[in-house]
Lab assay of single mutants.
Amino acid sequence: QRITLKDYAMRFGQTKTAKDLGVYQSAINKAIHAGRKIFLTINADGSVYAEEVKDGEVKPFPS
Rank of each mutant, 00 (worst) to 15 (best):
A31P: 01
R11G: 04
A18G: 05
Q1L: 13
F12Q: 03
F61M: 03
A34E: 15
D7C: 11
I38A: 00
I42R: 06
D45V: 04
D45M: 05
V58W: 14
T4E: 09
T15Y: 15
G56Y: 06
A31N: 02
Q14D: 10
K37S: 13
M10E: 13
S63Q: 12
E51G: 04
E57M: 13
N43Y: 10
D55S: 08
V53M: 12
N29I: 14
V58A: 10
T15F: 14
D45A: 05
P60W: 05
L21N: 01
T15S: 13
L5K: 00
K30C: 14
G22D: 06
K19R: 12
I42A: 04
T17V: 07
S26G: 11
E52S: 03
R11C: 09
Y8T: 00
R36D: 05
S63Y: 12
D55R: 08
A50Y: 02
Q25G: 09
S47M: 07
A27Y: 15
K54W: 12
Y8Q: 01
L5Q: 00
N29T: 14
I32C: 03
G46V: 02
V23Y: 05
K6F: 12
A44N: 11
I28L: 08
T17Q: 01
I38G: 00
K37D: 09
R36Q: 07
E52D: 03
V48N: 01
F12L: 04
T17K: 01
L5Y: 01
V48S: 03
V48L: 08
A31L: 14
I32K: 01
N29F: 12
L5P: 00
I28S: 00
G13S: 04
A9E: 05
I38S: 00
A18I: 02
A50I: 03
I32H: 01
Y49A: 08
L40P: 00
Q1W: 07
N29K: 13
I38H: 00
F61D: 02
K54P: 02
A31M: 12
A44R: 04
V23L: 09
E57N: 11
N43Q: 13
A31K: 01
R11V: 09
K30W: 09
A34T: 12
I3Q: 06
I28Y: 01
L40H: 00
P60A: 08
T4S: 14
K30Y: 11
V53H: 12
A18P: 01
I3N: 03
E51C: 10
A18C: 04
T41N: 10
E51N: 07
G22Y: 04
L21G: 01
D20C: 06
A18N: 01
F12A: 03
E51H: 09
Y49H: 10
T17C: 07
A9Q: 08
G35S: 08
Q1I: 14
L5I: 05
S26N: 09
I3D: 03
L40F: 03
T4M: 06
G22C: 08
A50M: 03
K37V: 12
K59N: 09
G35D: 13
F12P: 00
Y49I: 11
A34W: 07
G35K: 13
R2G: 07
G22N: 09
H33I: 14
P62G: 08
I38E: 00
T15D: 14
T41C: 09
G13C: 02
F39D: 03
R11Y: 09
E52R: 02
Q14F: 15
V48G: 01
N43V: 08
I28Q: 00
D55H: 10
N29G: 12
G35N: 13
A34P: 02
K30D: 15
D20Q: 10
R11Q: 12
R2S: 08
K30V: 10
F12Y: 13
D20S: 06
K59H: 14
S47K: 11
I3P: 03
G56V: 04
R36H: 06
E57R: 12
S63T: 12
S47A: 08
T4P: 15
D45C: 05
S26R: 10
K59T: 13
H33W: 12
K37F: 10
I28W: 01
D20A: 10
V23E: 03
T4R: 07
G22L: 04
S47V: 07
K37M: 13
P60Y: 05
I38M: 01
L40Q: 00
T4A: 13
R11T: 10
I38L: 03
I28A: 01
G35M: 10
E51R: 06
F61A: 02
Q25F: 09
E51I: 11
K54M: 14
I28T: 01
S47P: 03
A9S: 08
N29D: 13
A50Q: 01
E57V: 15
T15R: 13
V58M: 09
I28P: 00
K16P: 02
Q25T: 14
Q1Y: 13
N43W: 10
A9C: 13
D45F: 05
V48A: 05
I32G: 01
S26H: 11
K19E: 11
G56H: 08
Q1E: 15
L40D: 00
D20H: 06
A27P: 02
I42C: 06
N29S: 14
G46P: 00
A34R: 09
A44K: 10
G46H: 06
G22W: 04
E57I: 13
G35T: 05
E52L: 03
A9M: 12
D55Y: 08
K54A: 13
R2L: 10
E51L: 08
A31C: 05
A18R: 02
F39N: 03
G35R: 11
